[in-house]
Amino acid sequence: MQVKFDVEGGNFSKAGHASSQVKKILKQLNVAPKIIKSIVVALYEAEVNIVAHAYNGTIEVTIDPQKILINLSDNGPGIADISLAMQEGFSTASQEVRQMGFGAGMGLPNIKRNTDEFEIESEVGKGTKLIMTKFF
């Protein structure tokens, strides 16, 4: 099964839409609650990253009986040093974003922790691609 979401950069009131929808689907599929939780937390972090940093992006979710594969891709500033961004607490979020309670710099490491496979690719000035997999 495939589901696709468009994400609007800068619109925090809509952040969390994709993760809520995916959560509903996973509950319908009788996926174990703990696994659902990890997926939703990882997806929510990634979704907020697009909203907070990029101009726009898409989320493509593919579900089969063994796993969920989530493909996120955005048009945005990109990440200059990925290994730095993967460190806990590192953040380039603006003051504004931080005041909203986002951008604490736990995003990428948190996504990695909550998924079984995690790939990240980024090009400065173009955008970032994330691929994450979680097995049921």
Partner: peptide, 14 residues
């Protein structure tokens, strides 16, 4: 909320 206890069948139903 689940459509079926069996995940493959639930996916098919969804």
């Amino acid at each position: 909320m689940m459509l079926d206890k069996d995940m493959a069948r639930a996916l098919e139903k969804l």
